[in-house]
Computed example of a mutant assay.
Amino acid sequence: MPTPSPTSRPSPTTATDHPTHHEGPAAGPHPGGPSSGIGISGPAARRAITAAATAPQYTGNIVTARQARQIRANPQLALYDNPNPLLMCVYKRDKALCHRGTKDTPSLDRCVPTCANIARTDQHAVGLRRRATVVAQRAAQVPGPLGERLRSNAGRLRDLADAHHRTRTTLQDGTA
Results as ranks from 00 to 15, higher is better:
residue 2 P to T: 15
residue 5 S to W: 11
residue 12 P to S: 11
residue 12 P to K: 01
residue 13 T to M: 11
residue 17 D to L: 00
residue 18 H to C: 04
residue 18 H to V: 02
residue 18 H to M: 03
residue 19 P to D: 06
residue 19 P to A: 08
residue 21 H to Q: 08
residue 21 H to M: 03
residue 22 H to N: 07
residue 23 E to T: 09
residue 23 E to L: 13
residue 24 G to I: 01
residue 24 G to H: 00
residue 25 P to I: 00
residue 26 A to Y: 00
residue 27 A to Y: 01
residue 28 G to K: 00
residue 30 H to F: 06
residue 32 G to Q: 02
residue 32 G to T: 02
residue 33 G to E: 00
residue 36 S to M: 06
residue 37 G to W: 01
residue 39 G to E: 11
residue 39 G to R: 07
residue 40 I to E: 00
residue 41 S to Y: 07
residue 43 P to N: 07
residue 44 A to P: 14
residue 44 A to E: 06
residue 45 A to N: 08
residue 46 R to V: 13
residue 47 R to W: 00
residue 47 R to D: 04
residue 49 I to C: 10
residue 49 I to M: 10
residue 49 I to P: 05
residue 50 T to L: 09
residue 50 T to M: 06
residue 50 T to F: 07
residue 51 A to Y: 00
residue 52 A to D: 03
residue 53 A to S: 12
residue 54 T to G: 05
residue 58 Y to C: 08
residue 59 T to P: 01
residue 59 T to L: 12
residue 61 N to H: 08
residue 62 I to Y: 07
residue 63 V to S: 08
residue 63 V to H: 02
residue 64 T to Y: 06
residue 64 T to W: 05
residue 65 A to Q: 11
residue 67 Q to T: 15
residue 71 I to V: 15
residue 71 I to P: 00
residue 73 A to E: 04
residue 73 A to H: 04
residue 73 A to V: 08
residue 76 Q to T: 15
residue 81 D to L: 01
residue 83 P to G: 10
residue 84 N to W: 08
residue 85 P to S: 06
residue 86 L to C: 15
residue 86 L to H: 15
residue 87 L to T: 12
residue 87 L to R: 14
residue 89 C to S: 09
residue 90 V to E: 03
residue 90 V to P: 09
residue 90 V to G: 04
residue 92 K to E: 14
residue 95 K to G: 06
residue 95 K to C: 09
residue 97 L to Y: 05
residue 98 C to M: 07
residue 99 H to Q: 03
residue 104 D to G: 12
residue 105 T to L: 04
residue 105 T to W: 01
residue 107 S to P: 12
residue 108 L to H: 07
residue 109 D to M: 03
residue 109 D to I: 02
residue 110 R to E: 11
residue 112 V to S: 13
residue 115 C to I: 03
residue 116 A to Y: 11
residue 121 T to H: 02
residue 122 D to Q: 13
residue 124 H to N: 15
residue 125 A to E: 14
residue 125 A to L: 13
residue 125 A to N: 13
residue 127 G to N: 13
residue 127 G to K: 06
residue 127 G to A: 13
residue 128 L to D: 12
residue 130 R to E: 15
residue 131 R to T: 15
residue 132 A to N: 11
residue 133 T to N: 15
residue 134 V to K: 14
residue 134 V to M: 13
residue 135 V to C: 09
residue 138 R to P: 02
residue 138 R to S: 11
residue 138 R to Q: 14
residue 138 R to D: 11
residue 143 P to Y: 03
residue 144 G to Q: 08
residue 144 G to Y: 04
residue 144 G to C: 08
residue 144 G to P: 10
residue 144 G to S: 08
residue 147 G to T: 05
residue 148 E to C: 04
residue 150 L to N: 05
residue 152 S to V: 02
residue 152 S to F: 07
residue 154 A to K: 08
residue 156 R to E: 14
residue 157 L to N: 12
residue 157 L to D: 14
residue 158 R to H: 14
residue 160 L to R: 15
residue 163 A to K: 12
residue 165 H to L: 12
residue 165 H to W: 12
residue 166 R to Y: 10
residue 166 R to G: 08
residue 167 T to W: 09
residue 167 T to Q: 13
residue 169 T to S: 10
residue 169 T to M: 14
residue 170 T to K: 06
residue 171 L to D: 10
residue 172 Q to A: 12
